[in-house]
Write a protein that binds this DNA or RNA. Sequence first.
DNA 1: CAATTGACATATCAATATGATATATGAGGA
DNA 2: TCCTCATATATCATATTGATATGTCAATTG
Lengths: 179, 179
Amino acid sequence: MANEKKMDCVILGLLSHEELTGYEVKKRMDAAIRFFWGASYGSIYPTLRELVEKGLAVKSDTAQKDRNKITYTITEKGRRHLKDWLEIPVEKDMIRYETLLKLFFAESAGKKTAIGHIESFEAKTKEELLYLQAAVKNLERFCDDESAHLYYLLTARFGAKIYGAYLEWCDEAKAALKG
Amino acid sequence: MANEKKMDCVILGLLSHEELTGYEVKKRMDAAIRFFWGASYGSIYPTLRELVEKGLAVKSDTAQKDRNKITYTITEKGRRHLKDWLEIPVEKDMIRYETLLKLFFAESAGKKTAIGHIESFEAKTKEELLYLQAAVKNLERFCDDESAHLYYLLTARFGAKIYGAYLEWCDEAKAALKG
DNA sequence: CAATTGACATATCAATATGATATATGAGGA
DNA sequence: TCCTCATATATCATATTGATATGTCAATTG
């Protein structure tokens, strides 16, 4: 029980909160967890089918109401699978800052280009930070001690904290390149 | 000229600093840029072959000295390709914190598990931070204004800054879960 | 009122990357 | 001499992305 497919677990996690369609799974990812995880339809839909095959989720045949809508619900087996995965240690946090990559090699392009990349990174970060700060404020209001909201709050605070650090670095890096 | 293969450009970037074997490419990635980029042999070796096919790098036939060693050198065309890529905007910074994922869904596993994940994240982060701080100190000593070291320094400072922020968050998050 | 746009919804596929594994050599220490 | 570790290249099944295709429904706008 050591090599659970990660995408299985992410989707099971989302389904542990509420039943969802594939489309909604994507939406949840693009909202609450976009700053630390992502997935494309090309992995979501096949994974959902596999979850059903493995008995970790079931399709709700909502054929009556919305013809073209397939809702997935987590099973008990699915909850156990999720819990098992949550207990085992984290394998790898993997990070790919294309911005830093372009900065690292910026000698081949010059300071102007480097500063340009930092400035777009800064702009994107500022936007995200506003969103995260709003999320934190909201969650602090509604968050009792034992609900899933507590964990949502902690991740949002993580985002707010590191996006703040990004902005500090942007200022320092720009100064170092301009000075 | 908008969809340069990323792996091509990373490796060209490394080759723009010095000529390297595939094995050394991996070593450079695992050293200087491991905290913001990574790649496996399964992508490095095929990519090197492609770079030669495209005329962006050449193999040095060091058949005389080390029989089993293939050294790659960037070509002028390769340098132009790298520069072109450096000029275009960053497409996507992509981040996957498995730690945050497990924390986000931690309601299904409980606070103890959540704290455990935070603590291993903290331990890994502390180690990395020491390495990065040493790199920063070192680079600040040797870094004249125009060399590639400047950009290396900026990325190392980025790492030091955000790893510091990680640690602050770890304390706060643990307190929130224990308090 | 018709037309168009955009959100909702599912699905597939080529290109790409990972992670594991296999193989082999040379250097250094026990 | 044997063993271990760093060096070095390579392949492959599996996973994932990013793009694309297809279609419905609701709302806005000319």
